[in-house]
Design a protein around this nucleic acid. Structure first.
Length: 258
DNA sequence: ATGCCGTGGAAACCACGA
């Protein structure tokens, strides 16, 4: 089973790119972030025409997450991260697909740091960590996929010396990511490529993609059951070179059948 | 070193992103 995550940066503006990528790479399950569309403006039919059933949590202008499944139906478990009823951002959706709990997340950016946005990011990270612990305790296979807005190590940044004060790379945020992983999760892409430079995001300007000035911020965390089923993965970075493309590239993993 | 680009929404600029 092939599972992908893709921050589309506007699902309607990105629809031709999204559909072309789906047709070419045919992932079984897809986590989307940054829909930037209200609930009723999700392009359900165009996605259904390619054989995908979808659940989504839209929001006007910003955020928004979705889970797609080909020849299967995502059974929704929740559409928000527990722990703060005041949190109005659409940043989390979770479903059971093919016997796996799939959590699709869009962790807050957090800039400028320090400040209220950074505090929100750290709080959201804490809630994610608490929820992740409950998912592990439940004992079912889990994938937590999405845009974590964190570069876990210096290897994941084209120029780490320039990013030390940024909300994506500050020590507190890296510590939060490592603390989460330490519960028993596997960073799937890093496991597959322990020594390579892997990026999932390239800024729109300064020719960042052409210079390969990238960041690795889109991640798959696997529960222990799935760690042993991981057989392949990668970044579809060619999509980043298309016209009218997102600043993120799609990332995917392949899990062996049980 | 920097929103220089890009998206969406409101109202011809602004918020936001990483």
């Amino acid at each position: 089973m092939k599972i992908a995550t893709y921050n589309v940066n506007g699902i309607n503006g990105r629809l031709p790119v999204l559909l072309k990528w789906l047709e070419e790479t045919t992932p079984d399950v897809v986590c989307l972030q940054e829909l930037k569309a209200p609930q009723e403006k999700f392009p359900e039919q165009a996605i259904k025409d390619l054989g995908y059933n979808a659940i989504w949590h839209g929001q006007k202008s910003w955020n928004g997450v979705a889970i797609l499944a080909r020849n299967a139906k995502p059974e929704e478990i929740r559409r928000e991260l527990p722990g703060d009823i005041e949190d109005s951002h659409s940043r989390y959706i979770e479903a059971m697909v093919n016997g796996i709990t799939v959590g699709c997340l869009y962790l807050p950016n957090g800039n400028p740091a320090p400040g209220p946005k950074f505090d929100y990011k750290l709080g959201w990270f804490q809630r994610l960590t608490e929820h992740a612990a409950e998912l592990l305790a439940a004992g079912t296979p889990v994938v937590l996929a999405g845009d974590y807005n964190v570069m876990p190590t210096e290897r994941d940044v084209y120029k780490p010396e320039r990013w030390g004060d940024d909300a994506l790379f500050r020590p507190e945020v890296r510590a939060a990511f490592h603390n989460l992983v330490a519960q028993g999760w596997t960073d799937a892409i890093r496991k597959l490529y322990p020594d390579e430079t892997i990026y999932t995001f390239w800024d729109y300007f300064r020719n960042a993609y052409g210079r390969d000035a990238g960041l690795r911020i889109d991640h798959f965390l696997l529960s222990p059951h799935l760690d042993s089923r991981l057989i392949a993965g990668g970044v579809d970075r060619f999509v980043r070179g298309w016209e009218k493309t997102s600043d993120h590239g799609p990332v995917w993993i392949e899990l062996a059948d049980e």
